[in-house]
Amino acid sequence: MKIDKNIFKAEFVRRPNRFQAYVKIDGEEQMVHVPNTGRCKEILLPGCTILLREENNPTRKTKYDLIAGYKGEKLINIDSQVPNKVVEEALRENRIESLSMYTNIQREKFFGNSRFDFKLTDDNGHEYYLEVKGVTLENEGITKFPDAPTERGKKHLLELIEAKKKGHGAGVLFLIQIENVKKFMPNEETDKEFSEALRLAHSNGVDIYAYDCELGEDFIKLKESVPIEL
């Protein structure tokens, strides 16, 4: 996925709330929008280099979105709108082999009381519900989700179990918005209930996928499958 808007480097200063941050652009402090409600504490450190996407919308309060940060040499994309776009691109290009038989791809469809990111259908009408979760938390190549408690995430997993029980395909794909990682794990320390629900989903036949990304300052795409440790 190519980012078709202007990208600028800046220096991170502080993040007073989930949606706003202050950065320095050419020495001048400005407020920007943060398109991620997660904590990102290990990425957004005072003085670190971050990437801004220019959003020339006259109705906005801020001119830029903070979309990525450098953690040392490692670039991490934190834009929560990116994972679904990257996964949709990969699905349409048949780069997720175990899902390549599904030819009809629909976004944001309901099953039960949950709206899932994708409803996939094959030529025989068999349905598959896929939820996508973006992963930004990394330590020495080990990645985890979530980085903040998520009741909604747990609810999605339980609904995927119900979809599976009713004869549909069901899966959750963790898109790691980082390159060259070692493995993926649920974040037991941050959200024990989500972690338990993920293991329960796996034991009930829900597919668990984890993929990392190839990314640069102006692009990001699904790369390869990553080992999962539940």
Rank of each mutant, 00 (worst) to 15 (best):
D4M: 13
K5A: 11
K5V: 15
A10T: 08
E11S: 13
V13R: 12
R14K: 13
N17Y: 11
Q20G: 00
G27H: 03
Q30A: 03
M31D: 02
V32S: 05
H33Y: 15
H33L: 04
E42N: 10
E42R: 12
I43W: 01
C48W: 07
T49F: 04
T49D: 12
R53T: 02
N56M: 05
N57C: 04
N57Y: 01
T62K: 08
D65E: 15
A68W: 13
E73C: 01
L75A: 01
I76P: 02
V86R: 09
E89W: 11
A90T: 10
L91V: 10
N94E: 14
S98H: 09
S100A: 14
T103H: 12
T103K: 15
I105K: 12
R107N: 15
E108W: 06
G112A: 03
S114W: 06
R115L: 03
D117H: 06
L120Y: 05
D122A: 04
G125R: 12
L130Y: 01
V132N: 07
V135A: 04
N139P: 00
K144G: 02
F145C: 10
P146R: 10
K154P: 03
L158D: 13
K164L: 07
H168E: 09
H168C: 09
F174I: 06
Q177Y: 02
K183S: 14
M185A: 10
P186E: 14
E188L: 14
D191P: 13
E193W: 05
A197D: 07
L198H: 03
L198W: 01
N204W: 05
G205W: 06
K221N: 08
E224P: 00
E224N: 13
I228Y: 01
E229L: 05
